[in-house]
Design a protein around this nucleic acid. Structure first.
Lengths: 223, 223, 223, 223
DNA sequence: TATGAATGAGACTTCATTCAT
DNA sequence: CATGAATGAAGTCTCATTCAT
């Protein structure tokens, strides 16, 4: 970051465009269909490996097999590329959770399903890397954090809360859980963070831990 | 960082010292007693606000009220400053946990104590910021992550595991918890991460959530 | 030079390439044909005037009429620029001497030819400046000195030795000269050094001195 | 070098003192008798090893066993230290040559004596290093070059010229030599330069080369 | 005299962004 | 649409010099 007014990089900052209007990321050229995706895929690799600040667009371009200038045909700037990456990766999962809340299965079954879904759809996916990025760079991208909350997390939370309230009404779980749905996901978050730092020498088995956690939160026979 | 490993330039390159021993961060000039601490405090503010890469030593210096070069009297370089900051902040808490494992109180009481201690000693402290930094920058500082694990976390884990195993032997908790002591801390971690991103518009009450979590993990009357 | 071998900073450090292969100086962008040469010419002026350490790339860039960053498109760093300059200037002369040894003229004629060639091809040329640089900075560039010896001087020496041995066999010169071909060139070297220091107030006529020297080493009528 | 006006280093330049008046180097404190010499000795080592620009006063101070500030009690600045070093080392040899011209021995004997004296008093001495420094840094120290010429070289030249003119009058040598006394010393200069660059892998036997040269210039039996 | 902590100007190098082709 | 050479602002680190003790 340079000065307060500007936002990120070091280079010349566009003297215009208040980061909201502008064209590229909104619509984008539809011409070569795969190119935007190619760039996003390359960006994912690079951002995951180095974080936002240390990723060079040169490397993204090289990895995507395009010229550096081409990136600017599809994205306003580095930050826009980053945001579009996160947005594109995380938006699709929103539906999943809402769907899970629909089925009316016992909470302890649901817990296992959630753990499995998380492992399958998120953890063993590049989405894990994106969430890691979100966690790491989020404080510096308030806009993005807010977007992420609004478009993704809040919906997940709503679905979870509904689901937990129903279970509470049935006497399956404590009402506290509905107040803090984050608790249900906490093992997953910890796994992402932990393995982000210590995987090399102290790896954590995400799914096993999540299931253990679920079993504690939702005992099978509360008899 | 900018400069490079080349070999000629005006200054002779430091004979290296593999970033660990070396003078500055080890002892440093003791002359003005508070100066090192002043710089560390300023660094904490800046790193917390902007992350590692975007923090300018110029700003650290200005905030500390010293000249830029002075920083280099006490720290080898920006990375050393960062590492010393993390090290200095987190090392002191190691003892706390070990101490808690000693007392032989019922697990559900211990849970509350842990939640309180975490809120008091970590969350409502600059240590929260340092942990946030650690989480954000850790993947790019393998050395630091390793150090942090070795000096801090592994000891916490050991103490927790011991404590949980004793409780399991007494039939107070499931044996699964001893396998994943991270679960006990997960609410705290999630709180740090969550508030790091969403505090402005969706703040999370850490202590309340941790206590709720503890009550779920360690029910008061398992009768 | 300033920056350092650290590991974090914004830019990923170049995977190194032991300062010899690597891209820039090898091929470089061929686009604008003259740009590399323009930069080298500017570098020659600046290095000649100030020496390696005191030359600012800012000045080189200004003189070449390019932006500072452009230099890094063609050369890895300041040292690479320096080395490429020396290499490019001196390599071409290698052939000259070898050619002179071919003709089988009396040694005293050859001596005059060498003196003339030296004056024309080296002394009254920017090559004089490069040799001056080589002499001044060589001790700090062992690699470059070695390269220079291997690619240039050793070949010159070999040619000279052959030439002198033939003359010795014919009884034209003492065998000592073949042991120390440097002697034949010594007047030229001294001229470069002398005028480098004292030209303003005590200039030395190189060609005259070299011819005088040649006449002493190779008397016209040894009868 | 910073800007044209200033002279060398990078640090704050004294806004005053036109490098000529000022106290330190002129008289210097006489108090601790050896301290000035200690510093000069340390400076010799460092300057010889690294050249002017790359020598750090920190290292000079450390080597001399004094504090950095102490250097400024004896020398105005880095350049003054350098100049005093060169001056102090070379001034003493002035007398030697003048003395040699006095004795009226045959020129070929004198030649051998000069070669021996050079090897003994200069080459196998730190004076070699100083001359190397003079050659390397001279172009950047016009004043020093001038001083060196005025105080040392010109006298050597005068003595040599006289000596050679007498020999020429006696018919021992060509009159050309008196025009270019530098020729007599050229082998010595070349040796210093050559070994400065290539000693590691192609060392040159100075004394042998000088004697060979002398024998060529002053044949033993011109009968 | 001597010290050595502190200063801060300076220079190298990087890389986001632009724009002529 | 695409390219990639060129730009130049920015930031880290160095070290000559000062000055309070």
């Amino acid at each position: 970051m340079a000065k307060k007014p500007s936002t990120t990089g070091r280079g010349r900052r566009k003297p215009s465009a208040s980061r909201s209007a502008a064209a590229p990321s909104a619509a984008g050229p539809a011409a070569v269909p795969g190119k935007r995706e190619t760039i996003l895929a390359a960006a994912l690799e690079e951002f995951s490996a180095r974080g936002f600040a240390d990723t060079r667009l040169d490397d993204v371009a090289r990895r995507a097999g395009v010229a550096k200038g081409t990136i600017y045909l599809y994205f306003r700037d580095k930050q826009d590329l980053f945001q579009e990456l996160v947005r594109g990766m995380l938006t699709p999962v929103v539906g999943n959770i809402a769907a899970m809340g629909a089925a009316d299965v016992p909470i302890h079954v649901l817990g296992e399903q959630i753990a499995e879904m998380f492992a399958r759809e998120v953890y063993n996916t590049h989405r894990r890397d994106v969430i890691r990025l979100m966690i790491a760079e989020g404080p510096r991208f308030p806009e993005l954090a807010e977007f992420y909350y609004r478009e993704v997390l809040s919906q997940v939370m709503t679905a979870m809360r509904a689901l937990l309230e129903r279970a509470a009404a049935r006497g399956e779980v404590s009402g506290d859980l509905a107040r803090f749905p984050q608790i249900v996901a906490s093992a997953g978050v910890v796994a992402i963070v932990w393995n982000g730092l210590f995987e090399r020498f102290a790896p954590l088995d995400v799914e096993a831990m999540m299931k253990a956690h679920m079993n504690l939160l939702f005992p099978k026979k509360p008899s």
